[in-house]
């Protein structure tokens, strides 16, 4: 874990979208309760993931597709200026 996220007693945090280890990091951002499980995917699509051929997960709860004048918001195509993602262990929120 310490190789993937900076050491912090209360959170797992990343400040850079690391495409190479995205799959591996995803496992850390899973939230669930007794019946519902949100996978660690971004809400918006990322590249080809989530297509019918390769579903993101059994139940894809968080999916959102936003198009701006017809152009799909896809994180793999955007140039990202600032990025942060955080799992807060104190609040159980991402």
């Amino acid at each position: 874990m310490s190789r993937l996220f900076p050491i912090d007693p209360w959170q797992l945090c990343e400040n850079r979208l690391n495409a190479a280890s995205l799959d591996r990091r995803r496992a850390y951002f899973v939230l669930n309760n007794d019946r519902l499980r949100m996978d660690g995917h971004f809400a918006e699509p990322y590249g080809s993931e989530g297509s019918t051929a390769s579903p993101r997960s059994g139940i894809d709860w968080c999916r959102l597709r936003i198009r701006i004048d017809g152009e799909l918001v896809d994180l793999s195509l955007c140039e990202i200026n600032r990025y942060a993602r955080k799992l807060d262990l104190r609040l159980a929120e991402v």
């Binding site: 579903p55 139940i59 894809d60 959102l64 936003i66």
Partner: peptide, 17 residues
């Protein structure tokens, strides 16, 4: 611009059970 929002829920029963 015009923003179109698709809010989705998709299931792939074959994947989870």
């Amino acid at each position: 611009a015009t923003i179109s929002i698709d809010v989705e829920l998709q299931v792939h029963p074959e994947v989870f059970a």
